[in-house]
Amino acid sequence: METTVVCRGVSKIYRQDTVAVPALTDIDLEIPKLDFVCLSGPSGSGKSTLLNLIGGLDAPTAGEIEVDGQRVDKMEKGALADLRLRKIGFVFQAYNLIPVLTARENVEFVMQLQGVGAEERTRKARKILKEVGIEELENRRPGELSGGQQQRVAVARAIVSEPSLVLADEPTANLDSKTAENLMQLLRHMNREHGVTFVFSTHDKLVMEFSRRLITLRDGRIVDDVRRD
């Protein structure tokens, strides 16, 4: 089976003055293409750290990370930025959107960085905004959207350029349960319809129910890895 993410012996140690704080220890993990994986675990278990390392936002202290066959841990800053631009979509818990851009401009942002022409950008952005159900809000800025609507725009932006992988760090943490459920249905729909691998983190049991594979972390180690489909 084709894999999107491979982690081999990945560790991350943060240094606070002279004290070493291990955030991840010896993580071995393979995530196949089109998977819909949930990272769960209590606060401080290393979920966000693992997502950040896979996304190339941070560098591991030890180990190897591959995304779509490319060694993330070996990449220079510029190559990492390019990898994130072309292969990885991000959805964060909050502060997800660029406040000075409208919903459609936010969705177009990544495509514009990629050099996609104006017409194609607008066409794709409108299509994806319709798919996430907020096409009528395309000209609103983030401050004029609810939390759920903002996350839908973020999902649309993450998915619009059809990356190999979408990483979502607690995407429902700031949403009420109904909105969270709707968002997870949307993510699962995107996973199926667009053929994108999803890895998201949560400690919300309701959200975990949507995953096809549930990986549990504790104290920086994988303590459980259950396939649910």
């Binding site: 936002l57 631009l85 660029i98 990544v110 932006r157």
Partner: peptide
Amino acid sequence: IREFGLFQALGMPPRL
């Protein structure tokens, strides 16, 4: 600052 982090996460090169 968070916005600049977001830009980088989305793949915006530092020079931009």
